[in-house]
Design a binder for these strands. Structure first.
Length: 129
DNA sequence: GCCAACGTTGGC
DNA sequence: GCCAACGTTGGC
């Protein structure tokens, strides 16, 4: 899950505890939100200014209508900051790893909520230690 | 700050 | 239903 740290950062998330992941206005990203199950884990990525994966979020509530969306077409999930990565994993590092060359973060840079395979997740976890 | 890559909108 | 025009995102 991606956010510009100027708009909503990891520190904001930690301070807030559980919060809605709102503002998604893209159907593909919305569909990915809908696939999330309670207790699923997600990486929190700081886009634009930092380009780092900084922490891990947990889904605490599955999708429901986004109250900030007047069209009633988009949804949110509730998430909670779970763990800060020991070392942030940068976009450059991810691009340098040939096993990660096909992930959406690299291939579809505009998508703000994207899936990740377990094997890919594990590689990134390893890189953060 | 620029621009490529997309996604959406609206005229036809 | 097509596509030009436009808006947004996010890497560089």
């Amino acid at each position: 899950m991606k956010s510009e740290p100027n708009a909503w950062s990891w520190d904001n998330q930690v301070k807030e505890g559980t919060s809605m992941w709102d503002g998604v206005r893209n159907y593909q990203a919305r569909n990915n939100l809908k696939k999330m199950k309670k207790n699923d884990l997600c990486f929190f990525y700081h886009s634009v200014t930092e380009r780092n994966i900084v922490g891990i979020l947990k889904v605490v509530k599955e999708y429901y209508p986004d109250p900030t969306d007047k069209t009633e077409r988009f949804v949110v999930v509730d998430v909670r900051a779970t763990k800060k990565l020991r070392n942030p994993v940068s976009l450059d590092q991810i691009k340098e790893n040939s096993k990660l060359k096909d992930i959406a973060l690299v291939k579809q840079s505009r998508l703000s909520v994207m899936p990740l395979k377990k094997t890919e997740w594990d590689i990134i976890i390893k890189m953060s230690n």
